[in-house]
Write a protein that binds this DNA or RNA. Structure first.
Length: 447
DNA sequence: AACATGATCAACCGCCGCAAT
DNA sequence: TATTGCGGCGGTTGATCATGT
């Protein structure tokens, strides 16, 4: 947003002193401080001041210039908009990749990230990331591309070898961004050793969403949008987009090609802008489902029905870094499919997180989750399906297991994902979609 | 055309750490 | 040592624009 015009100033008018000003002891009694968008004349004043006196001592700005802005506001304005070294253009693909890479390492350390990206501000990066996260939350895509995750994981493992287990920050500084939902490091460590992927889900993908904002980087541009399905929700809430720290737990990695040749998989996966429908079979449905049949009404549920890929994920070229070690991939692929995968679509994620945190205090978490998953499978209420005894989620993620082989028309029980009823009813086609996420070894259609 | 929804951006708020007193 | 002021940081909000229905 650019600086508002002078006419807008009167509209914004002068506001009461912020609590922060009060905190800092700023004397705002006689002349109150203005809030809201900066005007160009205010900018000029600030620029002139900083040019003359340099950065810092922001509270002096008002004294010396008469600018009705608090020191903080001045600093922010300068740092985010007026600094001469700022880049004004949109993030380049390289920068986007770098941001994701940095976030995998640092978490929500915007200022630190900004320090690594010349000409970029923490606010800018934060906005970019938050937008991206919103999108990812909706689509259920993994936050990090596999090589970034694995890279960070490897770094983390190296840290493991040399650090104690006394604190999350020490233990997993690179993979456990410190945020509202900080998960005890022990959980993450556990996750690293108990691995299984969670199943994918399908959803409709507006064709417009399949195109990168970058020319020539169109994602899946050759793929009929109706043939794509969504990667599933993250394995564990602690790794979900909402948590701002996640592993690439989507089933796009549950692919033989990826196991055998991660790099080539990455290059030919959904990240691949050259992907064709035939090449992308793991990500495509042989049959379209109704969600994908151009039924727009189905795209309005909470289920994240619009397959708008994160812009980063269209930057395939940058996701083709050297292959991670296969053992790491194996570890990754076997990340456990937990109840949270299913329940994430439920009500408050925070509840799930809290639950997760509680449960992860127990070493039996995966046992518990496993049984729960079974319950979920049995919750398939549609009687045309049956759970096949002796099969389960474990086998589903065998690299060679075909996934999502349910044909169109496959219904799904709301119970499976605890979806709010209204959402289900609004999107009947999603039922088909979601059952497609179930392991075929666990459920089969009774013919 | 009107409305709804989503995306983006700028700015604010509250908290924290640090240095000066 | 306690207090105060300041700067920095991360989270959040609100305005605006774009797009879809």
């Amino acid at each position: 947003m650019s600086v508002s015009s002078e006419s807008e100033v009167s509209k914004n008018d002068v506001d009461s002193p912020s609590s922060d000003n009060a905190n800092s002891g700023e004397n705002v009694g006689e002349n109150t401080l203005k809030k809201g968008p900066w005007t160009s004349s205010e900018d000029d004043i600030l620029i002139e001041y900083v040019t003359k006196h340099g950065e810092g001592n922001w509270n002096a700005v008002r004294k010396h210039t008469g600018l009705a802005r608090c020191g903080k506001s001045c600093r922010l304005r300068w740092a985010n908009h007026l600094r001469p070294d700022l880049k004004k253009e949109a993030f380049s693909p390289e920068e986007e990749y770098r941001i994701i890479e940095l976030h995998a390492k640092m978490g929500n350390k915007w200022a630190r990230m900004a320090a690594e990206l010349p000409g970029r501000t923490d606010n800018e990066i934060k906005n970019y990331w938050n937008t991206r996260i919103k999108r990812i939350k909706r689509t259920g895509l993994p936050i990090y591309p596999p090589e970034i995750y694995l890279k960070a994981l490897n770094e983390n493992q190296q840290i493991d070898e040399t650090s104690t287990f006394s604190s999350g920050e020490v233990h997993c500084p690179d993979m456990m961004p410190v945020d509202n939902f900080e998960i005890p490091a022990v959980e993450f460590k556990t996750l690293k050793m108990n691995h299984r992927m969670h199943p994918p889900s399908f959803l409709d993908i507006p064709s417009s969403s399949l195109h990168s904002s970058y020319p020539g980087k169109s994602l899946l541009s050759t793929v009929n949008p109706s043939k794509l399905f969504q990667w599933s929700e993250p394995v564990n809430p602690c790794l979900s987009p909402t948590m701002n720290d996640t592993i690439p737990c989507g089933t796009q990695y549950q692919n033989e090609n990826y196991v055998q040749n991660p790099q080539s998989f990455i290059q030919s996966s959904a990240y691949d802008n050259n992907l064709t429908s035939s090449q992308a079979s793991p990500l495509l449905l042989s049959d379209s489902n109704a969600v994908l049949n151009g039924n727009p009404s189905s795209s309005e549920s909470n289920w994240a029905t619009k397959m708008e890929l994160p812009s980063l994920q269209s930057q395939v070229d940058y996701w083709s870094s050297p292959s991670p070690p296969l053992e790491s991939i194996d570890t990754l692929i076997q990340t456990p499919f937990t109840e949270h995968t299913l329940s994430r679509h439920n009500s408050g994620l925070l509840d799930v997180v809290n639950e997760s945190q509680t449960k992860t205090n127990s070493s039996n978490i995966f046992q518990h989750q496993s049984s729960h998953v079974t319950d979920m499978v049995f919750n398939v209420t549609d009687t045309s399906y049956q759970v096949i005894p002796g099969t389960g989620w474990n086998s589903y993620w065998e690299p060679t297991s075909p996934l999502c082989s349910f044909s169109e028309g496959t219904p799904i029980s709301e119970n499976i994902f605890n979806e709010p009823e209204e959402a289900i009813e609004a999107t009947p086609d999603l039922k088909k979609t979601r059952l497609s996420c179930l392991p075929q070894t666990a459920v089969r259609k009774i013919t």
